[in-house]
């Protein structure tokens, strides 16, 4: 069972009124691999993400999550918070959504809400300050500290998240998602707005998450250096449908992909591509 892909998307369909944002999309994301979802602006990538993470209810199709322990969860049947709570899918947002008025550490504590809620005996044990709660809280702080260290923000732990630099906020959001201890991590344009150095650090972070935590990663990205360097598998979308799929190299050389990106016809695109190489 553990060889089965972590995520199977089958015939996914999403309509908004008369507009078909995602049309009959099928792809797999492999376990402990990094899968990238790319495509020009408006291709429907974020819509796919929102369907997977429960913010939209798909109009049709199936999204299955195959857990390590053999459980299969139908994500299209769960909604909002249950995706994270029951299916262990965490996500970040294209336009960073931290809790700006809370410190970096607090952000990571909120991420451990469900575990801490149980530990605090639904608040009762916490209110009386039971020892079991205290040790759980200490453990939570330790986990947060570990992640702050891994994203290089340990010295900013007590600063308000809203005060951090843009690149730091991006990494904090990833750390926050990791504090929910997810099986599948969905990143919506994690490299957007980062400079070359920061984007290199991001690559290392994602590779280390895959290697050490064994977390499978699904990411949307425009920054081709990130996609080409770290992804194991690339799915290309345009106008709501899948136009190509394969290894980064295979996808890069696919004329259909080039055409989609350059908005030109295939022959012309190939010419451009050859020139570029």
């Amino acid at each position: 069972m553990s060889d089965a892909p972590i995520l199977t998307v089958e015939h996914l369909m999403m309509r908004f009124g008369g507009i078909v944002a995602v049309n009959d999309l099928s792809f797999n994301a492999d376990r402990r691999k990094i899968t990238a979802l790319i495509g020009p602006n408006g291709a429907g990538k974020t819509t796919v993400f929102n369907c997977i993470t429960g913010f939209y209810r798909p109009s049709g199709g199936a999204i299955r999550l195959n857990h390590d322990d053999g459980r299969t969860i139908h994500l299209e049947r769960l909604n909002d918070f249950r995706i994270s709570k029951q299916a262990s899918v965490a996500r970040t947002f294209q336009n960073i959504r931290l809790f700006p008025g809370m410190t970096a550490l607090e952000n990571l504590m909120v991420a451990q809400h469900n575990a801490l809620m149980r530990a605090s005996g639904l608040t009762v044990l916490g209110l009386i300050g039971a020892p079991s709660w205290r040790s759980a809280e200490r453990a939570a702080i330790e986990l947060a500290r570990t992640w702050l260290a891994r994203v290089g923000l340990l010295d900013r732990a007590d600063d308000a998240a809203g005060n951090l630099a843009y690149g730091d906020q991006r990494r904090l959001e990833i750390a926050r998602a990791m504090c929910t201890e997810p099986t599948l991590l969905c990143l919506d344009e994690p490299a957007a707005g980062l400079n070359a150095r920061e984007s290199g650090a991001l690559n290392e972070l994602l590779l280390s998450i895959r290697a050490e935590q064994g977390t499978s990663i699904l990411l949307i990205e425009h920054d081709m250096s990130v996609v080409m360097e770290i992804s194991d598998h690339v799915v290309v979308m345009d106008y709501g449908v899948k136009i190509a799929e394969g290894t980064p190299q295979a996808v890069r050389d696919d004329p259909k992909v080039i055409a989609a990106y350059l908005g030109a016809d295939e022959d012309e695109a190939i010419a451009v591509m050859e020139k570029a190489n």
Binding site: T53, G54, F55, D80, F81, R82, I83, S84, K85, A90, R91, F93, R97, L98, F99, P100, G101, M102, E106, M109, V110, A111, Q112, H113, N114, L116, M117, S120, T123, G126, L127, R176, A177, T180
Partner: peptide, 26 residues
């Protein structure tokens, strides 16, 4: 006391960003 418990932090997180709360399984 409640502010330092998960429930209180969830309240404040809700005030800060409800969508992010949902993404974190709250």
């Amino acid at each position: 006391r409640l502010r330092r418990l998960p429930i209180g932090r969830a309240w404040e997180a809700l005030r800060e960003d409800e969508v992010a709360c949902r993404a974190l399984g709250i």
